[in-house]
Amino acid sequence: MKSINMKVNPLYSDVDLSIVFQFEFEQFGNKIGEAFVSTYSTAGHPVQIRKGKHGSFTKTDKTAVIDQFEVVGGVEKNCMKKLKHFLGVIGISNVHSGYTLRSRFGE
């Protein structure tokens, strides 16, 4: 898994007011795949996470939808693990798949 590098390019979508992340996966300097993930604020009540002397801070639940995921070379699971780890780091644990896993060489 350490031999796989992941680049993240955030994009803003005016159409549905979401942030879309483009992920590019590389192994040994060669591009092996990419993914597109849309993120949305989950409807509902914001959760209060901290009250300080300068006011309250709130956190809104966020959801991610994997719109496209295409990787070659049999490393799909490792790439998906890296992608989900990144989403977890930015506070998104609710991830849905809106894609069909495809491999260019039928692996």
Results as ranks from 00 to 15, higher is better:
Val37Trp: 07
Ile32Asn: 04
Asp16Ser: 02
Asp61Glu: 15
Val47Gln: 07
Ser18Tyr: 08
Val8Ser: 08
Gln22Leu: 14
Thr42Tyr: 00
Gly52Tyr: 08
Gly29Leu: 04
Ile4Thr: 02
Gln27Phe: 10
Gln68His: 14
Ser38Ile: 02
Ser56Tyr: 07
Val72Asp: 14
Gly52Glu: 05
Ser38Leu: 08
Ile4Gln: 03
Gln22Lys: 15
Pro10Thr: 06
Ser41Tyr: 15
Ile66Ser: 09
Val75Pro: 05
Pro46Met: 05
Ser38Asn: 01
Gly74Ser: 11
Phe28Asn: 05
Phe21Arg: 10
Val75Gly: 01
Lys59Phe: 13
Val20Asn: 13
His54Met: 00
Phe69His: 11
Thr39Ser: 07
Asp14Arg: 07
Gly44Met: 13
Val15Leu: 14
Glu24Val: 06
Lys62Phe: 07
Glu70Ser: 11
Val20Ser: 07
Asp67Phe: 00
Ile4Glu: 03
Glu24Cys: 08
Phe28Gly: 11
Gln68Phe: 12
Leu17Met: 15
Pro46Ser: 03
Phe69Ser: 00
Ile19Leu: 10
Pro46Lys: 12
Phe25Ala: 02
Val71Gly: 08
Val72Ile: 14
Ser38Gln: 05
Ala43Ile: 13
Lys53Asp: 12
Met6Pro: 01
Met6Lys: 04
Glu34Trp: 12
Leu17Glu: 15
Tyr12Gln: 10
Val20Ile: 14
Phe57Pro: 13
Ser18Cys: 09
Val65Asn: 08
Phe57Lys: 12
Phe36Glu: 12
Val37Pro: 09
Asn9Trp: 13
Ala35Asn: 03
Thr42Gly: 09
Ile4His: 00
Ala64Leu: 09
Lys31Glu: 04
Val72Phe: 12
Asn9Leu: 11
Lys53Leu: 13
Ala35Leu: 02
Gly52His: 01
Gln27Cys: 13
Glu24Tyr: 07
Val37Cys: 04
Ile32Ser: 06
Gly44Ile: 05
Ser13Pro: 06
Gly73Gln: 01
Gly33His: 06
Lys31Trp: 01
Gly52Lys: 11
Thr58Phe: 15
Gln48Lys: 04
Gly55Trp: 01
Glu70Gly: 04
Asp61Ile: 02
Gly55Arg: 04
Phe23Gln: 08
Ser56Leu: 00
Gln22Val: 14
Ile49Asn: 01
Asp16Gly: 04
Val75Cys: 00
Lys53Arg: 13
His54Thr: 01
Val72Ser: 12
Phe23Met: 04
Asp16Lys: 13
Lys51Ala: 08
Ser13Gln: 06
Phe69Pro: 03
Ile32Gln: 11
Val20His: 09
Ser56Glu: 05
Met6Tyr: 00
Glu70Thr: 02
Ser41Asn: 14
Lys62Glu: 10
Thr39Phe: 07
Phe69Ile: 11
Ile49Gly: 03
Lys51Arg: 06
Gly55Asn: 08
Asp67His: 04
Ala35Asp: 01
Asp67Asn: 12
Phe69Gln: 09
Glu70Met: 14
Ser38Gly: 00
Ser18Glu: 02
Tyr12Arg: 10
Glu26Trp: 07
Leu11Thr: 04
Leu17His: 15
Val71Tyr: 03
Lys62Trp: 12
Ser18Gly: 06
Ser41Val: 14
Val37Lys: 02
Tyr40Pro: 10
